[in-house]
Nucleic acid binder design. Sequence first.
DNA 1: CTGAAAGCGCTAACAG
DNA 2: CTGTTAGCGCTTTCAG
Lengths: 344, 344
Amino acid sequence: MIIAPITISDIAKKSKVSVATVSRVLNDSDKVKEQTKEKVLKAIKELNYAPSDIARSLSRNITNTIGVVVPDINNPFFGQVIKGISSVTDKNDLYMLLCDTDENEQKEMKFIEMLKRQRIRGLIITPTADNDKFNAKYLSILENLNVPVVLLDRDVKYSKFDGVFLDSISGTYDAIECFIKEGHRKIAIISGPLSSKPGRDRLRGYKKALTMNGIEIDDRYIFYGDFRLESGYELTQEILKMEDPPTAIFVSNNMMNLGCIKALTEANVRIPEDMALIGFDEIELLNIMNMDISVVSRPTAQMGEVAMEILLDRLNEQKVDNQDTKRIILLPTLILRGSEKKAK
Amino acid sequence: MIIAPITISDIAKKSKVSVATVSRVLNDSDKVKEQTKEKVLKAIKELNYAPSDIARSLSRNITNTIGVVVPDINNPFFGQVIKGISSVTDKNDLYMLLCDTDENEQKEMKFIEMLKRQRIRGLIITPTADNDKFNAKYLSILENLNVPVVLLDRDVKYSKFDGVFLDSISGTYDAIECFIKEGHRKIAIISGPLSSKPGRDRLRGYKKALTMNGIEIDDRYIFYGDFRLESGYELTQEILKMEDPPTAIFVSNNMMNLGCIKALTEANVRIPEDMALIGFDEIELLNIMNMDISVVSRPTAQMGEVAMEILLDRLNEQKVDNQDTKRIILLPTLILRGSEKKAK
DNA sequence: CTGAAAGCGCTAACAG
DNA sequence: CTGTTAGCGCTTTCAG
């Protein structure tokens, strides 16, 4: 189904001026006599004309679309991030080409190449692999885009792209220190996998907080999960079976946190009377259900906004080869709701 | 930051053929001698060339992008829908221009006009206003797009666009009938606002089920909410205060359902021993937390898929003016988890 | 099989 | 102020 749309020359003809003049009123560049301008505007209205951005892009040799590549739209984190990005694109007449990689690296590379053909002006991306392994092919594809790239939440090793990240270490540090101030001494952590940076960082924050507060690190209290609900559930059960159990648990992400809460609830362990708890990331439902769990909260929408603003700056830059990488590291907020308390 | 990308003529020059030939190997149209083809391919690889989709679009007078306009990405329903749409676009070399209207009609109209300039080939949209009021301007903007439009979940009055919807009536009907089979006779409904079609339909399904099963409709058991959590919460409190309370409640959407559960929990009303419950729409986290609430479940991702497939069919159609509107009405599924049971 | 050349719809000098 | 014209990067006849 193809319907030839109205073009600029249709307007020119109808209003008896040249296409150049029409173009001028369209971009209100130069001066156009008020009278002719009105004629043109009238024709535009009558024919219901909308200029073709694609012709314009070709002619100007620049588009107004940016690419956004995320691993999973259904993850509330990315939903928020996209909202944040949109809020900036909306104000700047930019379009968002959205790709959902499903955490699939192959798909991701394909998307990036598609976006290159679309001549996106810039890219905001959360790479699928938060990998340590150096992926030369991946990096070269990204670099071959030849447009500014802003990383979001996940880094790409050996790259010098701009990025917006979160300081996991300090978030965890604050949480643990809060436990300590409450009087807890035996504090467990359900950590993420050490192969991921957030996993490592959160564990690091935990250790640092203990050390700085003169509490010895006890390996028995360190548990390694995989960020999925089940592991939070199982590890919590293990914790409950310990001979000398902790009085507080820090859980490194929201899914494991749910698993942990599930295990505690099933075992009739009251929070915080029997076990104090702080988790990483909000869980909206818990708040709704009046379950007051303290969390380290990330400014998600803001991450999207900031990423887009960095990108915008790059787009407006004059120098082609600005080498100074902009890396913004946002701080999470510790939100206390009582679950961190220590029984007297 | 602008870097002139490699063009087709760079390739032509480097491989010493004409641009026409390069174009041919790019589209593997016509026959190209194997040998020259290889030369060209080699040059493409070496220069890391990617053809410009926008130049191609202009020349072919057709793009490969479709517009998707939703009211709120953060609503899990639309997240799923987008996944469904993506699954089809991915396979068909189509790009998705995504717009989030924030339930704002002005924004929505602006987006549609932007999409027109982008010369999208088709549009999938969930209109902001599920309105009865006839909005001539809105309709004309949509029609002026001059591309196939597929409505998703919400209808536009007096339009003849294709669409994918959900049969709310039958979903609710099944739920209520299930209550009745369990032995419930006093069944309440927390309905949505009657100004919305889903609101009306769900109430209609409720009434129909009662009538068909010879149970008189008792207006005291009909409560009107606004689809938001608070109203579910408050109305449930009202229900609990009734002199002759129902033994079962049907709640018309997920947010009100949460509110209802919250109220029941706070009042120590056990589900289903003290009050049976079925809600409309899944709430993922309830399942995770082992809260077994029966629901009428919508095939969300499938709605997106189907919508995109309808659109695809339209794009491939020969006739420009195919008048037969395609309207698919999907059936929800009643998922029983025990919360519908009647105490003996 | 391959090249020349006209256009796709618009912008941007360059004249006038 | 306004018109003419040469592209933007690609596809697509039309010849050869």
